[in-house]
Structures are given as C-alpha cells and as structure tokens.
Design a protein around this nucleic acid. Structure first.
Length: 426
DNA sequence: CAGCAGGGGGCGC
DNA sequence: CGCCCCCTGCTGG
C-alpha cells in the first residue's frame, strides 16, 4: 500500500495466487462451470475461460462452439490424464508418476496445453532454473505461467505406485514442498477409483449437444493407471513472522511420518509450528472475495492472509479435486458443510501437555488443524470448526424460548437462559 | 452483566 | 474420533 500525494494504492497481496485458488475452488464446487469435459465416462465440469487460457486448442474450439454449455468428449485422453491436466491448468501444478509422464505429455500435446506442450513464452529461463525449484520459493506464484515442471526428477527418488512409502529424502531435499503422500491419504487414494459414482449427475444433463472431440494423433491405450493424485502435499500454515528470514520454507512437510515410530527427533521440530496467525483479523478483502465468489459455503481450505506472503505459496498441491469425489451431487446443507482442510501436524510425538498454552510452548504436538474456510482460524477439532463457522455464516440454531435471543452456541444459550430462569449468572 | 467465541475435558460410538 | 458440555477470556453496554 503506497501513498503518493494523497493517492492510495491498495494492492491485494498474493492476489494472483488467491485468484488461482479461487478458480480452483470454483471448479471443485462446479460454480459457473460452462463446459463439461467427458472422457472415459467421467465428466469434468470446468470453465471455458480457464481452458481457453491454457490451450489455444480449447480456445478455438469454444470460439466455434456456440453452445452455452458444450460437452466436449475427449476420446483419446485417459481420465487420469485429464484430471492431471485440469489440476495443472487450475493449480499450475500437477503430480504425475514418472511412468505416466509420457502419456500425460502426449495428452497435453494433443490438447495443446500451454507450458506442457506449447511453449507459451520463452521457456528457457524457467526450465533452466529447474533446480531452483521456483515453486518452493516465496515468489507467491506471481505468474500463473504454466511451467513444465519435470517433477519426475524428484519422483525417481521415491518409489512409485499407489503405496508410496514416506518420502525418505533428506530434509534438505528441495522437494519437501510437494509430494508427501501422507499416510492418511492412503485410505483416500483407494477411493479414487470410485469417483464415477459422483458424476452420474452429469450424464443425463440436458446440456447442449456434445462436441465430439477426437484428437488427430492419439493412439494411447497404455495401461490405465490413474495418476495418483494423492500425491499432494499438505500445506501447513506458517507464521511467517517467525520466519528466520531465510527463505521460505519454514513450511514443513510432515510427510509420511504419520505411520509411526519413525520418530525423527530433532530437525522437524526445529521449525516452529504455527501458532495462530493473526486470527482475529481476517483479511477483509479475502473475506469479501470468499463471500462474493464462493458463497458462504465455498472456499474450503482457505488459508490466506495476504500478510503471509511468503509463508506459503498457495495451495498448489492442495487438491481436493484429487481426493474428493468428483462433486457429489449435493453439497450439503448450506453453511453446514464440513469440508475443510485438514492439515496433519504429525511429529510423531505424543501429546505433550494439556495446557492452554501448548501452542506457544510446545510445537511438538500431534493434532489436526481444521482450517476455517473463511478466515485463517484453525480449530482444534471439527466441532470447534463447526462452531466457529457459525460466526461467519450467522447461523444461530439455538433460540431462546422466552425471547428472541438466538445463539450460535448451545452453551451460550444456556447461559442466556439463566436470565430467564432466574439462576444467578456467573 | 450479557453476549460472544475459543479451548478443553469427558463420554459415547 | 467426534460431539457435548463447560470453562474461560474478552468486549461492550
């Protein structure tokens, strides 16, 4: 925010990253989607805008497709690849097994995905800096430019397949940004294959005539190994103030330690855990965006306060699209949806204390944070989050039978009732 | 003092 | 593990 003779320039910190994340969220929630990609019987409601942005192919296709909501049938694309590409287009990053890379690139070429197949701009510097791992830098993803990240470099160090062992790479490895296959992900990854049941809703969708899309040069019928999208990293909210200043990654990767006895002792704990960020003051702009774009029940996993700046670099790996069923037909009652990001803070240490100040004094805790979708608050428990959310939604389920008082909290109602029942207060 | 909101303990599933 | 209940701290009238 700068002032030049009376003129204020308000800048939205982290705007681009935020914007991208909102887009991604919109896709998850199927908000404003205006095209449906269909491949291998699965349907992916997405946005023309995004596709067009990332692919001239789509751009032209939509240019010549007057339908308001066309269904594009991708005959020669594996759904796993499609999901990966969508993840790439929306999040700017995609996790792919090395063995699937070639197929993915081929698919990307078919669709002329910028950055994966079509040089969107001088790619030299991006690629040559590969070892700099730009995405782990604090560059807040200031540019949504697609980058062809040959993640296979890293993937080779870990074994592949659906049951990736915990990344055992040394902490110095630059990859601790991305792929930690959390143990709790394993269970979820199993359900990957059941995504179909979630998409039936689209089948009968009386949208416009389907656009048959058959890529000219595709033959791929390799084994269909779904891209293990559980290869997502988990972001941990980080109090950037505490940042030792040295770059970024005070963000920690809690990869694979959930399993258990591999108590790593020191190094991880070295990095302090987030105590609460400035939870009292969610960024008004962000909230506004949340409200405006995602609605009260949108924006899951919203972590951001712009102030965090380099504390984390957006949620690139945060892909509920990977772990979630593809858009269940009903998103649950308004305001009560429970989807929230769970960040597992796993340090293989047992709970160390029960005191209130544990956060400040003991970073070595094992617990889950339940991230509020509306602000940077993280609750200890899901129910805590639930209650907290009511402060955003205004939901007040507990009404006083004697007056018009309503509370968002049962116990508060109980306290209130005392003024009616005559029980001495406090 | 009333209201609000976060944290934590206890208990049941 | 999640829900329920309660304690506690803060704020405003």
């Amino acid at each position: 925010m700068m002032a030049s003779d009376g003129m204020l320039s308000l800048s939205w910190n982290n705007h681009k990253a935020t914007f991208c994340h909102i887009l991604s969220t919109l896709r998850e929630k199927e908000r404003y989607t205006d095209v449906t990609l269909a491949c291998e019987g699965k349907f992916y409601p997405v946005h023309k805008l995004v596709l067009s942005t990332c692919s001239e192919y789509f751009e032209k296709m939509f240019e010549h497709t007057p339908c308001k909501h066309p269904v594009v049938v991708l005959k020669d694309i594996k759904c796993a690849d499609m999901e990966a590409l969508l993840s790439y287009m929306y999040d700017g990053v995609v996790s792919v097994l090395q063995q699937d890379l070639a197929r993915l690139i081929k698919a990307a070429e078919l669709l002329q995905i910028k950055g994966l197949a079509v040089p969107d701009e001088p790619p030299l510097k991006e690629l040559s800096k590969k070892n700099a791992y730009p995405w782990s830098s604090r560059d807040d993803r200031s540019s949504p430019h697609p980058k062809r990240r040959r993640r296979e470099d890293m993937m080779t160090s870990t074994s592949q397949g659906s049951s990736l062992p915990p990344p055992e790479s040394p902490p110095s490895s630059p990859q601790h940004h991305q792929e930690s296959n959390q143990s709790w992900d394993h269970s979820k990854s199993h359900s990957q294959d059941q995504r179909e049941d979630g998409v039936d809703q689209r089948v009968g969708d009386p949208v416009e005539p389907a656009v048959e899309f058959s890529s000219p040069k595709q033959e791929a019928s390799h084994n269909q190994e779904p891209v293990d999208e559980s290869l997502v990293k988990e972001e941990v909210i980080e109090g950037s103030e505490d940042n030792q200043g040295e770059g970024m990654d005070s963000r920690i990767e809690y990869g694979g330690m959930g399993g258990g006895d591999s108590n790593t002792g020191g190094e991880e704990q070295g990095s302090k855990f987030p105590h609460q960020l400035d939870t009292k003051h969610p960024q008004p702009l962000h909230e506004a965006v949340v409200e405006a774009l995602a609605g009260p029940s949108g924006m899951q996993g919203w972590l951001g306060t712009g102030e965090l700046g380099g504390g984390f670099s957006m949620l690139e790996g945060y892909s509920e699209d990977g772990n979630q069923e593809v858009h269940p037909a009903s998103t649950g009652p308004h305001g009560t949806q429970q989807s929230h990001q769970m960040v597992e803070m796993s340090t293989c240490h047992q709970r160390l204390d029960g005191g209130r100040s544990r956060e400040e004094e003991q970073p070595l805790i094992t617990r889950k944070l339940h991230q509020c979708a509306y602000c940077s608050f993280s609750a200890y428990t899901p129910s805590g989050l639930k209650e907290h959310k009511r402060t955003h939604t205004g939901e007040k389920p507990f009404a006083c039978p004697y007056c018009s008082y309503k509370s968002n909290k049962k116990f508060n109602l109980k306290l209130h009732l005392r003024i009616h029942t005559g029980v001495a207060a406090k």
